[in-house]
Simulated assay, not measured.
Amino acid sequence: MSESPNPNIIDADTLTGEMRPIRRVVVALGSNLGERLANLQGGIDALADTPDVWITGISPVYETEPLDCPPDSPTFLNAVVLMDTTLSAHRLLDRALAIEDAYDRDRSHGVNAPRTLDVDLIVVGDRRSDTDALRLPHPQAHERAFVLKPWLDLEPDAEIPDMGPISVLLDKVGTDGLARRDELVLEYDE
């Protein structure tokens, strides 16, 4: 005789029809306006305060030359955050945009304009999306040393789905324009 599930236990996922697996998420943070380190820390604190999100790692901070930005743009501070979550990719995107808005992110000057805080979803588990609202994995992550190097510091064996190991991708891109800033530390409560 086979076992059947206990009919007296209510499974919330069954009620909603939504499966909520735990996914590994990689988020890239960047700031080149205002109190850059405080902006990054604020972004981490806001992510940590998000229900159903658990931060599992924060990379060292890197100072990076602006990429595809207007002339005379200030240098960026960048870091990568690893998280586990049961939230959907779209809910994470909404949260990332809300965090940017809380730091007065100005989107009126184009995609690569200087910014107080940039919160980019790089990967959300093995999720793939190619809509105007959400592209996963992040379409430029494999070309950006300021994403690959901090991520490599946290997970040397990590891969970007459909792109390959981040170590190989970083070898192709190189690390020119990146400077690790060990005196600048980002924290989270475990």
Rank of each mutant, 00 (worst) to 15 (best):
N6F: 08
N8Q: 12
I10H: 09
I10V: 15
D11T: 12
D11E: 13
A12W: 13
T14E: 14
E18P: 00
P21D: 09
I22D: 10
V27M: 04
A28C: 11
L29N: 04
S31C: 05
N32K: 06
L33N: 07
G34V: 07
E35V: 00
A38I: 07
Q41C: 08
Q41L: 05
G42H: 09
A46R: 13
L47Y: 03
T50V: 07
V53R: 02
I55S: 04
T56A: 01
G57F: 11
I58E: 05
E63Q: 13
T64M: 01
T64Y: 06
C69K: 04
P70E: 06
D72L: 12
S73D: 07
S73K: 00
F76R: 11
L77I: 14
L77D: 10
L77E: 10
N78T: 10
A79N: 08
V80N: 05
V80G: 03
L82Q: 08
D84S: 13
T85S: 10
T85R: 09
H90F: 12
L92P: 01
L93I: 08
L93C: 04
D94H: 11
A96G: 06
A96K: 04
L97I: 09
A98S: 14
Y103W: 10
D104M: 06
R105I: 09
R107I: 03
G110R: 05
V111D: 13
T116I: 03
L117V: 12
L117P: 09
L121H: 05
V123P: 10
D126E: 15
R128K: 12
D130R: 13
D130N: 14
T131L: 04
L136N: 05
L136H: 02
H138P: 05
Q140T: 05
H142W: 13
E143Q: 13
A145Y: 09
L148M: 10
W151H: 01
